[in-house]
C-alpha cells in the first residue's frame, strides 16, 4: 500500500495535545501513520485517549505540538484555510440544531469553499448538493426541516454535507454514536461504499469495534501510549485488541473479530 503512491494522509512523529498558557500538555506520545486514498480507516481506542484531538489535529483545527501532518504529500501548514477546505472535510460530534434550516441548505454549506462572497449557489453547486444527498439516500428529504430528522437521517445528511465539500479526504468523529444497531452498520457500510466508489480516504473514530473490524480496510488503534496500524486481521493476530480489552471481562475472537464476554454473565 505505502510507497506505491502518495498517501492521502501521512502522520510523521505526530504529537497531539494542548498548549496551556504556553506549557504543552501532550495527550498521546508521538507516532506515525498513513491512510491511502479509497481506504476506510477506523480509529479505535478507549475514552479519553485523544481520538478527537488527533482527528482535529489531522484537519488543522488545532495545531500539533510536534511532528508533521502531510496531506497528499504536502505539509498541512503549507495549505491556506481555503485550500485546506477543498482537501479535507470534517463531520464532528456536535449536533447543532437550528430551527427552520432545510436539509438542502445544511448540505449546501459544504459548497461554501467554492462560492462567492454572498454564498450564491451555481447550477453545478446545486447538482453537487443533490447528488451528495442521493449518494446517502436522502434526496427525497431535501426540503425537510433539518431539526426534525431522526439521528440516523441526520448522520446521513451531515455525511452528504462532507461529500458536497468534494474533498479527497473525509474525517468523521464518532459518526456511529447515538445510533441504533442497524443504523451503525448502515453508516459504516455507507462510508465503505463512499471510500471505494468515490475514491476518497475516509477516517472515522468509533467505539463499535466489532463493526469496524468487519468493515474497515485499515484500523488505527490507540492503547496504553502505543499506536498500532494495520488491517483488522493483522491486528487481531498481533493480539492488539487483547491489550485494548485488558482488565475487562471482554475478549475478542481472533478469527471473527467478534467481542464476547469471558465467564458467566451475571
Amino acid at each position: 500500500m505505502a510507497g506505491e503512491a502518495t498517501p492521502a494522509i501521512a502522520l510523521h512523529e505526530l504529537r497531539t495535545g494542548y498548549a496551556n498558557r504556553g506549557v504543552p500538555r501532550e495527550v498521546f506520545p508521538p507516532f506515525s501513520a498513513t491512510a491511502a486514498g479509497a481506504e476506510l480507516v477506523a480509529l479505535l481506542g478507549r475514552n479519553g485517549l485523544g481520538k478527537s484531538t488527533l482527528l482535529r489535529t489531522i484537519i488543522g483545527l488545532q495545531p500539533a505540538l510536534g511532528g508533521e501532518v502531510y496531506l497528499l504529500g504536502k505539509s498541512l501548514r503549507a495549505y491556506s484555510p481555503r485550500a485546506l477546505a477543498t482537501l479535507v472535510s470534517y463531520v464532528s460530534t456536535d449536533n447543532v440544531k437550528v430551527g427552520n434550516l432545510k436539509v438542502f441548505d445544511l448540505v449546501s454549506l459544504g459548497r461554501y469553499p467554492y462560492t462567492g462572497w454572498f454564498g450564491t449557489l451555481s447550477q453545478r453547486d446545486r447538482e453537487v448538493v443533490m447528488r451528495s444527498l442521493a449518494l446517502v439516500g436522502m434526496e427525497a428529504h431535501a426540503w425537510r426541516d433539518a431539526a426534525c430528522l431522526s439521528d440516523g437521517e441526520r448522520q446521513r445528511v451531515v455525511i452528504a454535507r462532507a461529500l458536497a465539500q468534494d474533498t479527497p479526504i473525509i474525517v468523521l468523529d464518532e459518526p456511529t454514536a447515538f445510533l441504533d444497531l442497524p443504523n451503525r452498520y448502515e453508516v459504516v457500510l455507507l462510508l465503505k461504499r463512499l471510500a471505494q466508489e468515490q475514491r476518497r480516504a475516509v477516517v472515522f473514530s468509533t467505539h463499535d469495534m466489532g463493526i469496524a473490524l468487519k468493515i474497515a480496510d485499515s484500523v488505527w488503534v490507540m492503547c496504553d501510549g502505543e499506536f498500532y496500524q494495520g488491517s483488522p486481521q493483522a491486528l487481531l493476530h498481533a493480539n492488539v485488541f487483547d491489550k485494548v480489552l485488558k482488565n475487562t471481562r471482554l475478549a475478542v475472537d481472533h478469527d471473527t473479530g467478534e467481542v464476547r464476554i469471558v465467564g458467566a454473565v451475571g
Binding site: 484555510p81 477546505a85 472535510s89 470534517y90 464532528s92 456536535d94 454549506l109 454572498f118 454564498g119
Partner: peptide
C-alpha cells in the same frame, strides 16, 4: 456582506473553520 459568514457560523465555530473560514 456578512450573510455567508453568519450562515457558516450557524453550525458552530469548528465547522465554520473546517469549510475554510478564518
Amino acid at each position: 456582506l456578512s450573510a455567508k459568514t453568519l450562515n457558516a457560523l450557524m453550525q458552530g465555530e469548528r465547522y465554520a473553520r473546517s469549510i475554510g473560514y478564518r
